[in-house]
Design a protein around this nucleic acid. Structure first.
Lengths: 66, 66
DNA sequence: CTTTGATGGAAAGTATGCTTGACATTTTTG
DNA sequence: CAAAAATGTCAAGCATACTTTCCATCAAAG
């Protein structure tokens, strides 16, 4: 799975720390998502999408197979 | 989080076991999702949505707070 | 050059998603 | 009704999401 999180966050002009704080997760979680170290839970994906006023599919890009 | 998995699966006329097999997860996983014992990973949510030709948001309903 | 703010990333621990296996209960079918 | 199919659910174990703590790097600013 890829995502456009860093791109979208920077468009909004906010830092990883600010986004983390709004979403009530740690800064490392945001950094790890942006750098592809792991995928978000579906709850966090919903929170992120809702915060940016987008659909999950607009931010997270599912790629076939594993 | 709520979901319409059981409803949508039955509309298609397939069993939990058949759906599980197509999605390459266990039957217990499908049963647990339908009965709300836990939420799917985002990868499984994408697989489910793609299988039914729907968006994640059409199947899984996010509810505020925890 | 030194400080400060933003980011990258490792390590260890907790929470949760998912598996296999087993058995009980409900629903369907002959 | 009796057998078979579908579903509910528990337990133990593994994988992964996320946390806290800590340290390093880099850019901007004083």
């Amino acid at each position: 799975m890829k995502n456009r999180l860093e791109e979208i966050r920077k468009q909004q002009g906010i830092t990883q720390e600010e986004l983390a704080s709004v979403l009530e997760v740690s800064r490392q979680t945001i950094g790890s998502l942006e750098n592809g170290r792991y995928n978000p839970s579906i709850l966090l994906a919903f929170k992120i999408a809702r915060y940016f006023g987008m659909k999950i599919e607009d931010i997270f890009i599912y790629e076939e197979d594993q």
